[in-house]
């Protein structure tokens, strides 16, 4: 019998590490294991923030592409509000890239939803395009030197009390901070599209 593979059950989860794609990193942008591109963006508090400033004095950072219009992102308000308290070793940048989300709008949303995390404004969505963030939320975990360790979903969109809840970003963070190889370096993102033709149609309501 032709069995091409060894039994799946015997395959350790750790074998996901070091999976690499065959395309050259330079063409991909933000590839796992490669340095990410930097950015300089205004925050809703008025200051200019760079990736270097987020990483300063930290062991790494989490960058999350986010939108105030996105109902999937609302699901993570509490997670993001407590992120810095829960992970003092990591910097955090939450980047709003969708059209129609200017700084005044973002400030109003932050006040309305009591958002405490740092929100940066990516006018025109250029950074989202460079980082290949097509939908929100999309999370990136990078180490202290700016090398990408993990990209994708935060979890499987269930609540912690649900028996079917599966976190993705938190285990990656825990493994990185513990100096262990990452079990998963990429999990598919889901969420609202950063750009969509449906946002350009005449309003339905």
């Amino acid at each position: 019998m032709s069995r091409l593979y060894w039994p799946l059950k015997s395959r350790p989860l750790g074998s996901f590490r070091n999976l690499r794609c065959s395309m050259p990193a330079a063409e991909i942008g933000q590839a796992i294991g490669s340095p990410v591109g930097g950015f300089q963006l205004p925050s809703i508090n008025g200051e200019q923030v760079t990736l270097a400033s987020i990483l300063k004095g930290k062991r790494g950072a989490v960058v999350i592409f986010w939108s105030s219009f996105c109902s999937h992102c609302i699901h993570y308000d509490d997670f993001l509000n407590s992120f810095t308290r829960d992970h003092p070793e990591l910097g955090l940048a939450v980047i709003a890239s969708r059209d129609g989300e200017g700084l005044p709008h973002l400030r109003a949303i932050a006040a309305e939803r009591n958002l405490k995390f740092p929100i940066l404004h990516d006018a025109g969505g250029n950074i989202a395009a460079t980082w290949f963030a097509r939908q929100t939320p999309r999370a990136f975990l990078i180490d202290g030197t700016g090398v990408l360790l993990y990209r994708g979903a935060i979890d499987n969109f269930k609540y912690a009390k649900d028996p079917d809840f599966v976190p993705y970003l938190e285990p990656a963070i825990a493994e990185y901070l513990a100096g262990r190889p990452l079990s998963r370096v990429e999990v598919a993102s889901f969420g609202c599209a950063v750009k969509s033709v449906y946002y350009e149609l005449p309003k339905a309501l």
Partner: peptide
């Protein structure tokens, strides 16, 4: 990947 796993190459 031919070893029982798949790699996400959506971006690539």
């Amino acid at each position: 990947n031919g070893d029982g796993t798949f790699t996400d190459v959506s971006v690539e």
